[in-house]
């Protein structure tokens, strides 16, 4: 039993919530972008995007090359916006300000993330917790909790190189959530997960979205329908649609291409662009 945690009925693990966590935030939106333009190489991959995201799970949909990954990387403060304004958790990202405070509240799973093969899952997540400047005494408990949440507790002390693709991705999700981020950015998190794991992952997403802002980029429309409270559709670096999954489904008619209402809405909104 780790200090500050309680096992609830059904094995669910609860955490002691500090006063700082329940204090009202000083901002209206976790993510606020106006006329955002971000360069990826020579191409302007995000080109004049206006976006406001609050709490909940936001599914980021769009065709390949729509600028989803570039948008997520700029939210993760990896890329500097070329122009426009971007505010993440109330602090502007564009300026030359100290990003440390903001980055402590971020969780980020890149699309292709590298790791050190000789590390065990626990060492990997602990190392990421250290990089996120978590207090030393909180690290072992937080790491155990993150590893349990993604269902890797039994493999926590296995080397990363012995894991399957789906397990590596779950270890990646564990490092993203280890610091209980206020803004969680997941780029294609369900790639490589089998159907059972995807269902469990969606449940985890719903839990996480209840008290933080989660942005999930995906190309799997059923993920959006099942787990997201909000859909953000981008194409050509611009926002095409933002609304609930039901509103997205309502946008499509019986003549549009697709097997499900959401797919038909997706193709209707993108026109020929998909």
């Amino acid at each position: 039993m780790v200090e500050g945690r309680t096992v609830l009925e059904g094995g669910e693990v609860a955490r002691a919530v500090s006063a700082a966590e329940v204090a009202p935030t000083g901002y209206a939106w976790q993510v606020k972008a106006e006329g955002l333009r971000v360069r990826a190489g020579r191409k302007m991959a995000v080109d004049g995007l206006d976006l406001r995201l609050g709490r909940g799970v936001h599914g980021l949909l769009g065709p390949n090359g729509a600028g989803k990954t570039t948008l997520i990387r700029s939210l993760a403060t990896v890329l500097r916006p070329a122009s426009g304004t971007l505010e993440v958790l109330g602090s502007p990202v564009s300026g030359r300000l100290d990003l440390r405070r903001l980055r402590r509240a971020l969780g980020y799973l890149p699309q292709d993330f590298g790791y050190y093969k000789r590390f065990t899952v626990r060492e990997f997540v602990e190392y990421m917790a250290w990089l996120k400047e978590m207090p030393k005494r909180d690290v072992p408990g937080a790491v155990q909790r993150a590893v349990e949440r993604v269902g890797l507790a039994d493999r926590a002390d296995s080397r990363m190189k012995t894991l399957s693709g789906g397990m590596v991705r779950r270890a990646g999700i564990a490092q993203a959530i280890v610091n209980d981020p206020e803004l969680l950015l997941l780029d294609e998190p369900t790639a490589g997960l089998d159907p059972g794991q995807r269902v469990r992952f969606r449940e985890l997403l719903q839990q996480l979205g209840s008290d933080s802002c989660v942005v999930v980029s995906t190309h799997l429309v059923e993920d959006v329908a099942a787990a997201c409270t909000d859909v953000v559709l981008v194409s050509g670096g611009k926002l095409v649609f933002q609304g609930t999954p039901d509103e997205l489904a309502a946008a499509g008619g019986p003549d549009d291409v697709g097997d499900s209402p959401i797919e038909r809405g997706y193709s209707a909104l993108l026109g020929g662009a998909w």
Binding site: L99, R103, L106, D112, Y115
Partner: peptide
């Protein structure tokens, strides 16, 4: 040279200290 580069650069410690 650093496989975890993308992960490291988004963390608070990625900066002068590192």
């Amino acid at each position: 040279m650093d496989p975890a580069y993308e992960l490291v650069v988004s963390t608070p410690r990625a900066g002068l200290q590192l």
